[in-house]
């Protein structure tokens, strides 16, 4: 479970997060959505410790996030970013082995875990010997997800994980991801700017604007019962020409 209590953060007089309170229940997926600069990434990064809130508290499974608890809590979160953040000088396998090795796992355990995750993410085991630059964008994101899952964290944080992929690969990976979230019962916080993707993943969608939460609910809540004019505007802006045509 992730809890934000009254979290605020500002950069040079600009309020990026304005007294945010939000709870992501264990085993559910919450999607943060909004225009760029609305604070959705900042909120996600606050959970990783990369952003340090000016005030308010964050709890991960009832443990308050502080500089003391951060190292321990980091082993309980998996983090995936848009370009994967894989280390270019290491093969996929070495990327995956980094943390387990530092934590003293034996090689057999590491190999078993890699096999298990390769199967889960539908990656052929041969790709493990490739360097990131030799993988396709979709493969890179799958390896990145594997790396995030290596230590079997309870919490998964994904920042625009599919943002850089072309539509077909993106669609394929969306389905695989949703399947993995459900199967593993992880607590997921995902950031996207795509409403369709948000509706696809999210048990709940949280729409943000200027560092505040505008509306929370399912996709149909946002479409049918918009909290204000901004929500309507945001929803309408994402209707595709295709949809108009079908209608």
């Amino acid at each position: 479970m992730i809890q934000f209590k009254n979290v605020s953060k500002s950069y040079q007089n600009r309020l990026a997060l304005n007294h945010i309170s939000l709870t992501v229940e264990s085993g559910t997926t919450t999607v943060l959505i909004g225009s760029s600069g609305c604070g959705k990434s900042t909120l996600l990064r606050a959970v990783t410790g990369l952003v340090n809130p000016d005030s308010g508290e964050i709890f991960l499974n009832e443990v308050r996030l502080t500089s003391q608890t951060l190292p321990e809590l980091r082993s309980k979160i998996g983090y995936v970013i848009q370009e994967g953040g894989l280390f270019p000088h290491l093969t996929a396998e070495k990327n995956l082995q980094l943390m387990p090795k530092l934590l003293g796992w034996n090689m057999r355990k590491i190999r078993e875990r890699i096999n298990e995750l390769a199967e889960l993410t539908a990656l052929p085991i041969e790709t493990m010997q490739s360097y990131p630059s030799e993988l396709s964008g979709g493969q890179r994101q799958r390896v990145s997800l594997m790396r995030a899952l290596m230590l079997d964290p309870q919490i998964l944080l994904l920042d625009e994980p599919l943002g850089a992929l072309d539509p077909i690969i993106r669609r394929e990976l969306q389905e695989d991801l949703r399947e993995i979230f459900r199967r593993l019962k992880k607590t997921v916080l995902l950031v996207t700017h795509d409403l369709g993707e948000a509706g696809f993943f999210g048990d709940r969608i949280v729409l943000m604007k200027n560092g505040t939460l505008v509306q929370q609910g399912s996709l149909s809540d946002l479409v049918q019962r918009p909290a204000d004019a901004f929500v309507t505007e945001f929803v309408n802006a994402q209707r595709s020409p295709l949809e108009e045509l079908v209608r």
């Binding site: 410790g49 990369l50 190292p71 082993s75 979160i77 970013i81 953040g85 980094l98 943390m99 530092l102």
Partner: peptide, 16 residues
């Protein structure tokens, strides 16, 4: 920055 942050969030200590 992405690479640095990825390493940090993975939980790697500064020297590692």
């Amino acid at each position: 920055q992405q690479i640095r942050e990825s390493a940090e969030v993975l939980g790697m200590k500064s020297f590692a």
